[in-house]
């Protein structure tokens, strides 16, 4: 059981503040670090992994500082986002080298186990440089698991993985979380975090925007007013049919754009309402697009909430 504690941490690069007064505690189990690109997730993971000193505040692993303290790597396993590895080594050699560098008693046995955990034995004799992105991700994972760390930090681990590999890695992380290990992974994709983590930490523009149970945060994200742009065979008739329902808060006709702008109070009930109403009135829908669904707008809503 190990806990990473971030207290009052800021990190700036010159004039740019990448992480702004963040305090959080990463406990055993799976934690998702969610935020849009450029929010400071990688900077936070570098701070947690001891590869960046905080400009202010402290990062500790069970009361031991992680900066300038290589001993923490007995406890921490790290899966960096960058793809560069030792491309001239085979998968086996790469993971074995990591096992040896950890000073394990039986590096070959540990390597065999780690490669089996990520199901990469079939490609272990091939050079890492020849791997696909997903395979590389898995062999990086094996290198981080080889010393069976109680803390695992993963920076955007699902990038470049196909759905099957993604499922497999999710299962693996779930197992590790269930074993009582502390697993932290970053992602800018809400669905990924939702599928995996019960506990999420949201960072936006370097600030700690939200922390807690994903259902709670998910509700905050989906219960806000949603705006849609709709084009149909009869916008005016659709407008009157929609406004009759309680989940529609506002409708406006944009005559110039020949479109209907709708504000819905609740995403899920509106998603169910729209096709039902359209079919009932015999109206054909040509286009339904969210007007404000970018992740940034979701996050900025969260920050205000």
């Amino acid at each position: 059981m190990a806990t990473l504690t971030v207290s009052g941490v800021s990190r700036w690069f010159g004039n740019v503040v990448a992480v702004n007064d963040v305090t959080m505690s990463i406990d055993p189990g799976i934690t998702g670090l969610l935020g849009p690109n450029g929010a400071g997730k990688s900077t936070l993971i570098h701070l947690l992994g001891g590869f960046l000193p905080p400009s202010a505040g402290t990062v500790t692993l069970d009361d031991a500082p992680v900066w300038k303290n290589p001993e923490v790597y007995r406890t921490i396993g790290l899966v960096p986002e960058r793809e560069a590895t030792f491309d001239f080594l085979t998968g086996w050699e790469f993971v074995l080298a990591n096992a040896e560098l950890h000073g394990l008693d039986q590096p070959a046995a540990a390597t065999r186990k780690a490669l089996a955990t990520v199901a990469m034995e079939y490609a272990q004799e091939r050079k890492v440089g020849e791997y696909s992105k997903g395979m590389k991700q898995r062999v990086k994972m094996a290198s981080a698991l080889v010393h069976e760390p109680s803390v695992l930090l993963l920076d955007e681990p699902f990038n470049g993985m196909d759905p099957r590999q993604r499922m497999h890695l999710m299962d693996l992380l779930r197992k590790m979380g269930a074993d009582g290990r502390t697993v932290l992974f970053s992602s800018h994709i809400l669905e990924e975090v939702e599928q995996l983590a019960h506990h999420i930490e949201v960072v936006v523009a370097g600030r700690h925007a939200a922390s807690g149970d994903f259902r709670e945060i998910r509700r905050l994200m989906t219960d806000r007013p949603h705006q849609f742009v709709i084009r149909s065979s009869d916008d005016r008739a659709l407008a009157s049919a929609l406004i009759a329902d309680g989940s529609t808060e506002g409708v406006s006709l944009d005559l110039q754009d020949k479109a209907l702008r709708v504000q819905a109070s609740h995403l899920l009930s509106f998603a169910e309402l729209l096709p039902r109403v359209a079919r009932g009135a015999g109206i054909r829908l040509y286009e339904v697009s969210p007007a404000d669904e970018s992740l940034e707008s979701v996050f900025s809503y969260l920050v205000k909430a």
């Binding site: 992994g49 590869f51 290589p70 001993e71 923490v72 790597y73 007995r74 921490i76 790290l78 960096p80 960058r82 560069a84 590895t85 030792f86 080298a97 990591n98 560098l101 950890h102 000073g103 290198s143």
Partner: peptide, 15 residues
């Protein structure tokens, strides 16, 4: 330059 040094540095080995 390419960041692969991280695999050597993330180990309990004196610098």
């Amino acid at each position: 330059d390419d960041g692969s040094i991280v695999y050597i540095l993330a180990k309990p080995i004196s610098r």
